[in-house]
Simulated scan of single mutants.
Amino acid sequence: MNIGIIGAGHIGSALAGRLTSLGHSVYIANSRGPETLQDLARKTGATPVTTEEAAQRGTDLIVVTIPLKKIPDLPKDLFKDVPAETPIIDTSNYYPMLRDGQLPELETGDLTESGWVQQHLGRPVVKVFNNILADHLAQPGKPAGTPGRVALPVASDDAAAKRKVMQLVEELGYDAIDAGTLRESWRQQPGGPIYCNDLPADKLREQLASLGTERTPEQHAGFLANQAKQEQAMAAQGIKL
């Protein structure tokens, strides 16, 4: 496939290396220009391009993996010439203390993180790759049927796009689990039991079922509180995003 990656941070770089190793053509962009991505190109085999070129050349799949607060800064017409059937993956996570500042719609729970992204992009998105550590994502996955194979939740309102993305997740060596609609993607956000815990398929399904589908105010508050504690711990360790 021809895959465009917008964002060359930890997740974008990890995906670039994995996808090129599987034979896909990867076009990767960052906010500073393709000339700053030469080292990454040598390491991964991805082709450095501009943000606009990543959208244009990612004819089969596009990954948007930039800090959440930067989503509104993307060109408003970035996807105007991208075919409607091209899936757009969103990997974002909300880190209000360490990076993003407070976003009112996410603080109140009116929107999920990817719901907020979808509104800004004006295109349906598929939520995946947000709840696995980039260091883990950079390593080869495991063949189907391998005990302990990590499972990744995939959420979207676009059924066809979700199916295509789930096939890619399987190709990368993970069990792809249908995690419902974008409204239900709160279950894989930071602060919850699914986030960065590398669960196998049976345990992931159990967690999804135990959380339910409609987020309660108590669940929203609990996720935010858990995430705040995690961000405080990361800050104490000097971790920066």
Rank of each mutant, 00 (worst) to 15 (best):
I28S: 01
T51N: 00
T51K: 02
R42Y: 08
L15G: 03
P34N: 08
L22R: 15
A29Y: 00
T44M: 04
A16D: 11
T47P: 02
L22S: 07
S31H: 14
S25K: 15
Y27A: 09
D39W: 06
A41H: 04
Q38F: 03
L19A: 10
A16G: 03
L15E: 02
P34Q: 07
Y27N: 05
H24E: 12
A29V: 03
V49G: 00
P34W: 03
L19E: 00
G45I: 06
G33E: 12
G45E: 12
G45P: 09
S31A: 15
P34S: 09
S21I: 08
A14P: 04
S21F: 00
E52P: 00
S31K: 15
R32L: 05
E52A: 15
A41W: 03
T36A: 08
V49M: 04
V49A: 04
G33V: 08
T51C: 06
G23M: 05
H24M: 07
Y27T: 06
D39Q: 15
T51L: 02
G17H: 04
G17E: 00
L37F: 12
H24V: 09
I28Y: 01
T44C: 12
Q38G: 10
R42I: 06
E52W: 05
L15F: 07
R32D: 13
A14V: 03
L19N: 06
